[in-house]
Design a protein around this nucleic acid. Structure first.
Lengths: 209, 209
DNA sequence: GGGATAACATACCGACCAGTTGGTATTTAT
DNA sequence: ATAAATACCAACTGGTCGGTATGTTATCCC
């Protein structure tokens, strides 16, 4: 049971992290100022530093926040009710393709954006980003593993490497969409990825041990 | 014929752009200061602003510089002498996998790093990055088109979309390598990509019109 | 060789930014 | 009811950064 105070604190914290998420996705981590975040969140700087000891540690929290946000989004998506593991995996991929709409800041990944900037200069933030990305991979690897056991048990690739590859393609697709300012560029990459996965689970492939 | 002065100017300019390339790949664009670049290039701030009117316009030049650098690297790589277009394309992919070694700053792409940060805030830099990326794609699309004409003439995908997909996978692989601090993560994605391309040009695929 | 110009160098400035300080309002515990 | 603690606020600070103003030196052209 949350007290009135605790509930309010949590709300403010969420407002800050949400604003940070938006700002970092549009401008990058280094270019977003604490004042930017406060302005968007509708709080003062005092509140910000009451909740987080530094901008950097807020970024760590934002990485975790975004990871939880994403896992909730995909965890409650319609494809999860598919019975067959391959159908579920394909549903995941098609769902990820479908949400490539609107502005880049809306469908783009905070973790990829941030880790790219800070991977050498801010070890703690990098670590937090990796945790969140690999945490998401852990939620989809079982699905891939089940599908593999059923449809491609002798294939040479591992379920985890495929799950990681999916994330890599998405991250790359985001960059290409940002460069071209067209979500279509990202969608076309997802089409290639989906074609690849269909091949991996089809019967006439040759990559067996 | 370059005069002594012009040659020296070009050299200093190159030193600055080289230093910028290194700094931006390790820290990102916003976090690298003009002083950083000058220190690494061994020039003073006066020299920097003699060559470039602003940090932003230097970034545009750096994007072009990196694009030329990459095209020279791949243009003179051994795989270019392969006769068969498919072999040449596979040689390109394997070459790109092979150079995924050393520190992330060494094999990573300046354009992807920079465009991610500035795509909304600095339209001119974004444009320059897109030009360089798409410029590289233009150099490999003919190779893909030839290979397709020879081995997969009726396939539904276009050569350009595949060339773009290759860049997307690489960009994503870079991000994953940065997040995990292991080049192997990127290499595994390249393995999946290579397997996909082999499939596209094999005979038993089903994606024909 | 000398005047013009391009290629640097140094010292500095105003704006900005992460973080602090010292306080107030609200909630909680007794 | 009241004291303690928590949540929040506004003004300020020390340092940093992009850019400039003002030299100084090397090269070029005649």
């Amino acid at each position: 049971m949350l007290s009135q105070q605790e509930a309010r604190k949590e709300e403010t914290r969420t407002k800050i992290l949400g604003a940070a998420m938006w700002a970092i996705r549009t401008k990058g981590f280094a270019a977003t100022t604490v004042d930017d975040i406060c302005r968007h969140a509708g709080v003062t700087k005092g509140a910000f530093f009451h909740h987080f000891p530094s901008k950097d540690s807020m970024a760590e929290a934002a990485a975790e926040f975004f990871g939880d946000f994403a896992n909730k989004l995909f965890g409650s998506a319609p494809f999860q009710s598919e019975q067959d593991p391959f159908d579920r995996f394909m549903g995941y991929l098609e769902f990820r393709r479908e949400i490539l709409q609107g502005t880049t800041a809306e469908f783009t990944c905070l973790l990829g954006t941030m880790v790219q900037e800070v991977h050498l200069s801010h070890p703690d933030i990098r670590e937090a980003c990796q945790q969140s990305i690999w945490g998401h991979v852990e939620t989809i690897t079982p699905m891939v593993a089940e599908a593999k056991a059923k449809y491609a048990p002798t294939a040479v690739w591992t379920p985890e490497s495929l799950a990681l590859h999916v994330q890599a393609v998405l991250q790359g697709a985001f960059i290409m969409a940002k460069a071209s300012q067209k979500p279509e560029t990202a969608i076309e990459s997802m089409d290639h990825l989906i074609r690849y996965v269909e091949f991996l689970f089809s019967e006439n492939q040759e990559n067996r041990s």
